[in-house]
Each structure stands twice: as C-alpha cells, then as structure tokens.
Design a protein around this nucleic acid. Structure first.
Length: 785
DNA sequence: AGCGCATCCATTTTT
DNA sequence: TGGATGCGCT
C-alpha cells in the first residue's frame, strides 16, 4: 500500500530520482511553499525527501521540524522511510504525527500554561453523547425534543470554527437551549478532566494565539519551537487547524503545505477547500509547485478519473497524466441487486487471486457502512479472507470499552462517564437508586462522582448495604490506582481483568459470545504489551494515559493490517491508500452520489464527485465499478439509476459488463416480442444511446471510438458496449416502465395509481394514493405494485 | 437485577 | 434492516 520506496537509498538522498517539480519542492529552502500534488504523484516522497534534505543539507535540528499527516499510518510510513535515510536516532527527534497526536504532546508539554493536568482523558463520540445526555437531564430538557447528537453536531461545528459559547449568537429558542447545553457540556468536560477531539486542537491554538501576559513565555516558546512546518492533505484542514499551522510556524513562515483540492472530502467535518485555494493569497510570494505526473495507475484508470473530476465546478487548473501502460479498461458492471453485486465481487476477487494478486492488494470500497453487511456475508461464504478497515472497530466492542473505562478511571478518576460504565460491571449491587443518589450529590456540591463516593457514604441518604458496596468498589479502584503509580500498563490491565471480577462475570454467562469476549480481552492485553514494546524501542516510559491516548486517536486507516486479507472499507477510509485491484460498489444515484441531487445541494454533489475521484484513483491496475438495478438498504428496496459519474468516464477508458443474473432478469422482461440483448450483441444491432434530452451520450465521434475487442463470453460476465442501447428492458427495468394509469407502490403511502409523469432523469410522478390523495413523488421512490 | 420483548428509530462520511 | 432503547415481568 505504500508508494514505491525503491529510491530511498540509505546514505544518500537519491535526489536524482525525483522529477523536476518534485526536486523543486524538495530543494525549496525558506519561506512558504504550496505543493499541488495530484493523486499518486509521489507527494509522500516529496515530503520525506524535503525533511531529509532540511536535516542533512541545511543542518536543521530534527526537533525543529514538525510534519503533520492525516493518519497515524501515514506518519508511521514517513518515519520508516526517514529512518532509512537519516537513521533512527535523528528520526526519533522529528515531530511527525496527526494534528491530534501532535496536540496531545504539546498539551502535555505546556499543560501548566494551558491549565490542564497531563492525565486528561479524550472523549470520543459516544462519550460525548453520554455527557450530553447527563447535561440534558440536569437541565431538565427532553432528549427527544433536543437530540444529543444534533446538539453535539451544532456545538461541534462552532468549535471547528474556533468559536466558544461566548461567540454563540442566539436567534431563537433552540439556539438558547443549544447555548445552555454548550456551556454545561464544556463545564462537564472540564470537571471530568476530559477533552473532546476538537478541544485537543483548540487548547493548543488558544495558547499559541494568547495575548495573556502571564503565559507569554510559554506562547513565545511554543510559537518559535518549530522552524519548519509541513502539512500533508492540506485540502482537508479546517479553520482551527489552519490557524494552528499558522501559529506554530510563527514568524519564520517556513510552511510547506501539500494537498490536492480535487481530493477534498471532509467538508462535513469542517474542512475548507478554500484554505488550499487561498494559501497563495494568505502567503504572498509563496512558491507554487504542481505535481501532475501520476506514477500509480494505468492510463485507463487515470483517464476515467479525469473524466469525472474535469466536470468539477471549481478547481485549481492542472492535468494529471501518466506514463504508465494503458492497462485494462475500467469495467462498469451492471448487476441485478446487492447480492448479485457481492457475488460478482467475490468472483472477481477469486479470479484476481488465482492470477497471483495478493489479497491485501485487492480492495472493496463502499459509500456507506451499511453496504458492508451483505458483502461480508458473501465473502465469508466464498471463504475469502477479508478485513474491515475502520467501521465498527475492535475498540468499539462493549467488553473492550468496559476495560478501557476501567483503565481510564485509573488514570483519571474524575472521568464520570467511565466511572458510570464500570461501577456496576460486574454487578456489585450498586443499582439505579444508589447511582441516582450519587449523581444528585455530585451536582449539589460539584466534583466528580468518584470523589463523592466517600462523602455520600458519610450521609444517611443511602442504606448500609449500599454503603458497603460503594466503599468496596472505591477500595478496589484505589488499589488499582496505587498499583499504577509503580507498575506498568500491562500489569495494571492484567490486575483489573483478574481482580475486578470482570473475567468471572464473562465466564459465568457461559455462551460462545462471551468466550469470544474473553479472547478479545486477551487481545487487548496484547495491544497494551505491543505499546510497551514500542515505547521501549522509542526510549520512552510507557504510561497508561499515553496508551489510552493512542487508542483514542486511531484513524480508520490505522486499523489496516499487513495481512493477506482483502481490505473492505468506505471510500473515506481509502484516502491515501492504493491497491492493484479495486472493486467500487454501489455506484448508484442516491447512494454514490449519496446527496446532491436536490437544488441547493450543489456543494454536496461536488464533494461526491471528488469522493468518486478519490475512489477511482486508488486503483493501480484494475478497477471494477458496480451498480445494481435494485438494492435493499435500511430495510427498503430501491430501484436505482446508475451514478451520473459513470457516463462521465470517457468511453475509450470503460467497458460495460453485465452479470449473469442481470442477464437472466432481462430475459424475463423481454419475453414478449423483444429480441434478447444476447442476440443483439451477436447481430451487432443497436442504436446510439440517447439520454432523456435526446443528446447523444458519447463524448466522441463514432469513428474515433476504439472498438472494444470482443472477449469470449465466459460464465462470469457478459460484456456490453457502452454506446449501444440494448433494447432488452434494462433501461425500462431501471424505471420499470412506469406509465400513466399504472399501479405503483410507495414505502410510506402504499399502492396508488400514476396520474402524470414529467421530466427526464428521475421524473416526477403524480400518484393518487388511497387515503392520501395526490402526491408528487420522484419515480425512483416508487416500485411496481 | 436481569432478562426478554416490543417498539421505535434512524440511517454518511470520522479525527 | 437491525440497533438502541425502554418497559414490564420474573
């Protein structure tokens, strides 16, 4: 998955192996630099060599260099390459990591100026939600009227833009409530000595931008410690990160940013493409380098990607090209439904493996996690080893979360969400009532639950049995806390599993599932051990809170293992990765692109387009893009139209293919009077495909269109010429031939009769439903009744 | 306290 | 569709 490493000669920099723009970016010494790096253009190599060059040629001390990557995995790869060039001692001193990981380190260093103790906990989504639920309860608000996720979403967006409660403008009642929750939420985190993901960045940013005299020396130290700052994937940086980079680079302004506006896919997370587009504006005189040669993919893959991205509304002018061989055309596979799609994928994987491709070089992509279930099922049946990258991770399992909560309580007993998770697991006779009394007391006098335990036991609010249970729990945890002062993380974790009663608790409920849970705990111990090993290697003291930090900051791609299994992941998780063979599934309107078809959603569509571009450019040699006629997702069957992006792939780079199941299906539809498409292929019959507006879809004159070589029709699939419309019912199947008077079904309104059909693409129908009257509904929401 | 059942709910992408 | 949640029963 790593890009070509062959040129990383130890001893010398191997600069001769760089192309001209790459060399220019590496050699650039002082001042701002922006590198537009097309997909597969060797940007990691550029960053790596640039760092090596700064250290080796310009004698920059390694601890003066900060390189920010998007995932820990990318950071690790960069480190690995640099070790080969600079050796481990020097490399160790470089600051390389994700924004979040770097900020954790900085918070620990400057914790006094920031006003934190170094053992803080990092709260993930579910922790945040738990906090918000408590906040709502405390404020006596209905969590149905004010869904925690929604509140957190709004608050999160504010924080991404570096705004706090004091900057919050209130326009209506909902805002008022949100502001109240915002304040209470931040206060709760503070009391728990915990931060959320954005806080990690904000705390450092606030210090770096602080004008406060009392912390002046810290601010100066912080903003002058890095002489060179490099940022990868700059197109996905949000406002907080942008300002952070600017602040950390300080007055020197030795900022090198590398990115590709065509690959910006995190707008929803606050990323702002304008950051990359405005860089030259914000840093006048910045050197600009464009890397346009792709070393990764075949000509057909690059051509397909270009066809899609060329239609982007706004982009930096540039043109990706490759000197690589043509390779196979991109196969666009028409399948019947999601099971048929999965069958095609497994068949294709088996073939690729038989052809000698390693399973780890074959990837399956999907737009949303919900698609993975069926794929997994079929992969298991076909006995193909696979790994899900990201998604429901190992660390999301309940027993793992329980154990992590124990560990977090040990390092930071103030963390209430963790305490509540473990206080009665295994059952210790500490029930709802007791916990209710405890939380009541804590809100009355402030302070964390853990610290209120003793105080509660001194009141007469609870019975003696409850007191006993609480005290023995407190004693148990105090024991672990004391142990952690001297013992290593692994030892503490082992004690907890053994002495907390958690293992017996799992053993007691003897079923297969809980046996697996015990195994998972063993695996967790393994990961703690692995961490200790790494710490030893890096010459650092292993600490429990450091381990917990790492675990919380894992990115989806970080869970990709180097094992011979087929990786399956969302397109987002695939960013920055590459594979020989790629299966891109679910390429259908309203799934991929998931959004953007409504007026006013143009930006969403643009992001979907860029996402499609990212997906396509992951493939080195072979790319299969699959779409289905029907798909059952979220319990509902939908009739699909192929994604618009498919028609934007130039015909000379694509080849249309249909699965056998689809073929059978189409025969049923053509029984009455039509000639089957098989016969048509044989006879070479067909007319130019036209879309609803009557325009020819082909982008090229007929004569220049390369003839698709007639490949023998095997059992696996049947090829279809992209520019021939087969009169076999495929088209009418997509829209099931709806016409006025026809009975159709809608998931909500039931069965009704079509009154009118209007518009092209996805036409709007007027349908008369029993009991609902006439409704205007897009055809794609309807199925034949 | 814990289990089983029913109901309701939301469905994008993640550091 | 299934996951999460809540409720009532044991």
């Amino acid at each position: 998955m790593a890009e070509d490493v062959a040129a990383d000669d130890p001893g010398e920099l191997g600069l001769a192996k760089l192309n001209e723009p790459q060399a220019r970016a590496v050699a650039h010494a002082e001042g701002p630099l922006i590198v537009f790096a097309g997909a597969g253009s060797g940007k990691t190599r550029v960053i790596t060599y640039r760092i090596a060059n700064l250290v080796a040629t310009h004698q920059v001390p390694p601890y003066r260099i900060l390189a920010v990557t998007f995932t820990n995995k990318a950071a690790g790869e960069m480190r690995e390459r640099l070790e080969k060039i600079l050796g481990p001692e020097v490399t160790r001193e470089l600051w390389i990591g994700t924004f979040h990981a770097v900020c954790v380190r900085l918070i620990r260093r400057y914790h006094e100026a920031i006003g934190m103790t170094p053992n803080f906990s990092i709260y993930d989504d579910s922790d945040q939600k738990a906090v918000m639920k408590r906040v709502l309860k405390e404020l006596d608000l209905d969590d149905r009227r004010f869904p925690p996720a929604q509140l957190l979403g709004r608050i999160g967006r504010e924080k991404q833009e570096a705004r706090g409660p004091e900057d919050f403008s209130v326009d209506n009642y909902f805002d008022e409530v949100t502001l109240k929750c915002f304040r209470a939420y931040q206060r709760r985190l503070e009391e728990a000595n915990a931060v959320d993901f954005t806080d990690l960045l904000l705390l450092v940013l606030r210090l770096a931008e602080s004008k406060d005299e009392t912390v002046r020396s810290s601010v100066e130290h912080l903003t002058s410690r890095f002489h060179y700052v490099l940022v990868d994937e700059f197109q996905d940086v949000n406002l907080v990160q942008y300002r952070l980079v600017r602040a950390l680079a300080g007055a020197r302004k030795n900022i090198c940013v590398v990115g590709d506006d065509d690959q910006s896919i995190y707008r929803w997370r606050g990323a702002d493409v304008r950051n990359i587009r405005n860089f030259t504006h914000d840093y006048p005189g910045a050197e600009l380098v464009k890397l346009e040669q792709n070393y990764r993919s075949s000509k057909n893959v690059v051509g397909a990607a270009l066809g899609i991205i060329r239609l982007a509304r706004e982009r930096q002018p540039k043109e990706l090209w490759t000197g690589n061989p043509d390779g196979d055309p991109v196969r666009i596979v028409h399948s019947a439904n999601e099971r048929d799609e999965a069958a095609f994928v497994t068949g294709g994987i088996q073939q690729a493996i038989a052809d000698g491709v390693s399973p780890s070089e074959i990837a399956v992509f999907y737009r949303v996690h919900a698609q993975s279930r069926v794929l997994e099922e079929v992969m298991r049946k076909a006995n193909i080893p696979y790994q899900i990258v990201g998604g429901t991770k190992f660390f999301d399992r309940s027993e793992i979360k329980d154990m992590l909560s124990y560990l977090r309580t040990v390092t930071n007993p103030q963390s209430d969400v963790d305490l509540l998770r473990v206080i009665n697991k295994p059952p210790r006779k500490i029930g709802k009532t007791t916990i209710g009394r405890l939380t009541d007391l804590a809100s009355e006098r402030g302070g964390s639950l853990f610290h209120c335990i003793e105080a509660l036991c001194e009141t007469d609010r609870i019975g003696s049995a409850a007191k006993k249970s609480l005290r023995s729990f407190k004693k148990l945890m105090d024991g672990f806390i004391r142990q952690a002062e001297t013992a290593g993380p692994r030892e503490v974790a082992e004690s907890i599993i053994a002495d907390s009663g958690y293992a017996e608790y799992l053993q007691g409920r003897d079923n297969a599932e809980d046996d697996a849970r015990l195994d998972n705990l063993q695996e967790l111990l393994g990961s703690v051990e692995e961490y200790e090993e790494e710490a030893r290697y890096a010459d650092e003291t292993a600490s429990l809170s450091d381990y917990l930090t790492r675990v919380s900051l894992l990115a989806a791609a970080d869970t990709l293992e180097e094992v011979p299994r087929v990786p399956m992941m969302t397109v987002h998780a695939a960013k920055g990765l590459e594979f020989d063979v790629v299966f891109l599934t679910g390429m259908e309107e309203r799934l991929f692109p998931l959004r953007g078809q409504q007026p006013g959603e143009e930006e969403e569509l643009e992001e979907e387009r860029r996402l499609a571009y990212v997906a396509v450019t992951r493939a080195r040699k072979q790319l299969y893009i699959i779409h289905t006629n029907t798909r059952t997702i979220y319990g509902q069957m939908r009739y699909n139209q192929p994604a618009r992006f498919l028609d934007q792939i130039p015909p000379e780079h694509q080849q249309r293919v249909a699965t056998p199941a689809l073929h059978d299906l189409s025969r049923q539809f053509t029984r009455t009077g039509h000639v089957s498409h098989r016969d048509q292929i044989r006879a070479g019959v067909g007319r130019d495909r036209q879309d609803a507006t009557g325009r020819r879809r082909s982008l090229q004159p007929e004569s220049s269109r390369p003839k698709v070589p007639a490949r023998p029709r095997g059992e696996r699939y049947i090829e279809r010429d992209p520019d021939v419309e087969y009169d076999d019912g495929f088209e009418s199947l997509d829209r099931f031939g709806a016409r006025v008077g026809m009975k159709v079904r809608h998931p909500k309104f039931g069965v009704g009769a079509v009154q009118q059909i209007a518009g092209g693409g996805d036409p709007v129908c007027v349908v008369r439903f029993d009991g609902w009257g006439d409704k205007r509904i897009k055809l794609s929401f309807l199925s034949p009744a």
